[in-house]
Nucleic acid binder design. Structure first.
Length: 480
RNA sequence: CGGGGCGUAGCGCAGCUUGGUUAGCGCGCAGCGUUCGGGACGCUGAGGUCGGUGGUUCAAAUCCACUCGCCCCGACCA
């Protein structure tokens, strides 16, 4: 635990794994690609869940659960009708028992089950909209895995809604994308670009897919959340119909949207530094840690008495940890809590006790500049103030980084290439919308279109690849 | 599935080219003492089928064959 984190600039992916493991968020099980989330990492996920759940409740969504395993025959019967939607299959035989007569399939997402249930539940326009969210685990057969970002099994929420009109479904799709963007920026302190996915990047079977795209510390993009307008594709495949006011049967308009434990990887990559993890206060399982300092037994007694007082002052206003472990130096503790990303550290030594004060050290500003003293009396208002300030500063820093590594090349293809192959980052460029142009960029530079941002410059330009008239700009970047 | 790399103590590695007593080092771990306001130090100690199997040899961590596992780069990635 006393080891230092690999520097971020030296080996980014090595650094990433190192931070995740040393901060005790997660580790690999001794099986290829299988991630074990540790208690500290799970506590972080619980805070993510709470932040999202609060927003879902505010938009009228209810939680439910759908099964993980589906008999093969069901999947064949129900799923093959959706054009382009071919879920990855995992065939299961039960260990220790007999071979199954019929293979079970693990759902990679719940669309199939949900489509089936909605078809049974929905009869009338009065049943709509139906707004359900599912907290669940899913399984994908990934060739190459990475802690949090791409794992064989992961935790997420998936929302599934059904509506009377196309417009209502589109509004819902946008509302939930907005919820994700709001969560990312205000809770996770990660600035994102909201936009629409290109045809080749969208969810199979969707009419439109939208995403929020974030920039990681190595300037690559990460899709941090998606929202899909499924049109009537799934409703037709699963026969989700309702009787409208005019006494005719109509297909519903459905949506789905999700955010996963991948967001934890994003938090690590956006905010982490050479010192380790850095957590935004709103999501940090531990917002403040008290580190008592003493030499003699006498000092120990007086300092720990003060710590008890501080504990009762701070417990109501922050998620608090007191590190009164013995036989470990204060310097070691400082570094350890920094590695775990705790936003605020409260140091209390004999000198502080004598003057009824503490030293506050903030994680987002290294060294002396990040330290100040505060009297015990002012802690109840100073600590929340600092936590808010740290939250705001982390978002501001991430915004600055995003801006500094964003380029607008308009229509010079060679420049696009130079940026992607050189410093890397997000490149805004005009795009005619032709899949061939997109494919060429991917082929030649490894960069993909991330999304077509809602926030367009307006007007028209020339496609960065073919020079044809383009009505929109798209963001190109290498992605995880 | 193609290309490359690696398996030696809980973790990270050296030793292998050129075979030779008892297989080393750092971290961590245990005990004792000194320390403690930015990753302490000293002493003592525990911990190993050298991934596995077979072969060559008087002798194998070291050479050969096979095999298992892992990592990286590609392919793939709602």
């Amino acid at each position: 635990m006393a080891e230092k984190v690999i520097p971020r600039s030296a080996d980014y992916s090595g650094w990433y794994n190192d931070v995740v493991q040393k901060a005790q968020l997660a580790d690999y099980a001794p099986v290829r690609g299988c991630m074990v989330i540790m208690p500290y990492g799970y506590a972080l996920w619980e805070n993510v869940q709470a932040g999202l759940d609060r927003r879902f409740k505010a938009t009228g969504h209810k939680n439910a659960y759908f099964p993980l395993f589906i008999p093969m025959s069901f999947l064949k019967r129900e799923a093959e009708h959706v054009e382009g939607f071919s879920p990855q299959l995992a065939i299961v035989t039960i260990g220790g028992g007999e071979r199954l007569d019929e293979p079970l399939v693990i759902r990679p997402t719940s669309e199939t089950i949900i489509g089936h249930m909605y078809a049974q539940w929905i009869r009338s326009y009065r049943d709509l909209p139906i707004l359900i969210n599912v907290w669940s685990n899913v399984v994908r057969w990934e060739q190459r895995t990475r802690l949090f970002l791409r794992t064989l099994e992961f935790l997420w929420q998936e929302g599934h809604t059904a509506h009377v009109t196309e417009q209502e479904a589109e509004e819902e799709t946008m509302r939930m994308l907005g919820v994700y963007a709001d969560f990312a920026e205000n809770d996770a302190a990660i600035p994102v670009i909201k936009g629409r996915k290109s045809e080749s990047e969208k969810f199979a079977g969707a009419k439109h897919s939208y995403s929020i795209e974030a920039m990681m510390g190595d300037r690559r993009a990460l899709q941090a959340g998606t929202s899909h307008n499924l049109g009537q594709n799934f409703a037709r495949a699963f026969n989700i119909q309702y009787l409208d006011r005019d006494n005719t049967l109509k297909h519903c308009w459905t949506t789905s949207w999700g955010m996963s434990t991948r967001i934890i990887g994003a938090i690590v990559m956006v905010h982490g530094d050479d010192q380790g993890l850095q957590l935004p206060p709103r999501l940090a399982p531990i917002q403040a840690v008290i580190v008592p300092i003493w030499k003699s037994d006498e000092e120990r007694t007086t300092v720990l008495e003060a710590v008890d007082r501080l504990r009762s002052i701070l417990t109501p206003i922050a998620r608090l940890e007191v590190d009164d472990r013995e036989g470990i130096t204060p310097g070691f503790k400082f570094n350890e809590w920094e590695m775990k990303g705790v936003p605020l550290r409260v140091e209390v030594g004999p000198r502080d006790v004598a003057s009824q004060q503490v030293v506050l050290a903030r994680r987002d500003i290294a060294g002396k500049p990040g330290k100040t003293t505060a009297s015990w009396a002012e802690l109840p208002h100073r600590v929340p103030e600092w936590l808010n300030d740290i939250q705001a500063n982390m978002l501001a820093k991430a915004r600055r980084f995003l801006a500094e590594n964003t380029y607008h090349v308009e229509s010079d293809y060679d420049e696009l290439r130079r940026i992607i192959e050189g410093p890397g980052g997000f490149v805004w460029a005009w795009w005619c919308g032709n899949g061939a142009c997109e494919a060429r960029v991917k082929e030649e530079t490894k960069a993909t279109t991330r999304n077509i941002p809602f926030d367009q410059p307006g007007g028209t330009g020339k496609c960065v690849v073919c020079g044809a008239v383009a009505k929109q700009q798209v963001v190109f970047a290498k992605a995880y």
